[in-house]
Write a protein that binds this DNA or RNA. Structure first.
Lengths: 133, 133
DNA sequence: ATCATTGCAAATCTTTTGCACACCA
DNA sequence: TGGTGTGCAAAAGATTTGCAATGAT
């Protein structure tokens, strides 16, 4: 489908993720990359986010708000801690999966390809704000 | 927000989930409940799915395709096994979270409210189909 | 020169919302 | 009766796509 051709748009988007370590939604990527390429279209951003994810340069995750967010794929296997207050997303390096899970999947004859784990709650800052009220 | 009023539409939707144990998207619920209430609108379905989730009668999950799906909330805490072939979703009763995860969250001073875990891969049937090709 | 990629706009898909009317408590 | 719920249609938000022009190899 996508044949890794290097365009200034694609490079600019990828560089953005090399500088930022945050999770970014397509619209945010568009805003940020516009500083460098004012004429880049949102459609192009979507196509490149998809292409870069396909070739493993980005990692795409769909969150409960139904919006996809992307992050640089430089990291190891990891999971997410999502703040219900400020919507900030922090990576978790510890994978919580106990070995029994493999047995269960084997028993079901389910061939696992990947998994995801996300904890939702309140980060330190939002916790304090909550308690002040 | 929603004050648990009992209408025939709301009852019909809830009954649907008592008969079916599958995960259903809003559009599917609409199609199915129409057999019983032909004039029910999609908007009403959405509003009731939301209301029923709020009051704990249904459980809503947003999947990587960006679509929300619902299931009856009769079950205990559980997770999901999602087939990449047939899109079927099966519940996993085993929660994989190791105790170390709690320590990590404490260290981060993150107050966990809930978490989710999903394994994506191929169910027995789709595995066979794959291997035949 | 070829074919992927772009910009733009229109289209799609899921979900939400405004409004007048209907119906539950 | 009063306020929540409904149907309908329009709106909103995220993402995809058709097309002619552009640009990378």
């Amino acid at each position: 489908m996508y044949n890794h051709r290097s365009t200034k748009q694609r490079r600019a988007i990828l560089e953005l993720f090399n500088r930022q370590e945050k999770h970014l939604a397509a619209e945010e990527v568009h805003q940020l990359v516009r500083f460098q390429l004012p004429k880049i279209s949102l459609g192009t951003v979507y196509r490149n986010l998809e292409a870069l994810s396909e070739q493993g340069d980005l990692q795409k995750t769909v969150f409960p708000d139904g919006k996809a967010r992307f992050e640089g794929a430089k990291h190891e296997h990891h999971h997410h801690m999502v703040c219900l207050g400020c919507s900030n997303i922090v990576d978790i390096s510890l994978c919580p999966v106990r070995p029994e899970m493999k047995d269960l999947l084997n028993a079901e004859e389910f061939e696992a390809v990947y998994h995801r784990f996300e904890v939702f709650g309140y980060c330190r800052d939002c916790r304090e704000k909550k308690n002040r009220n």
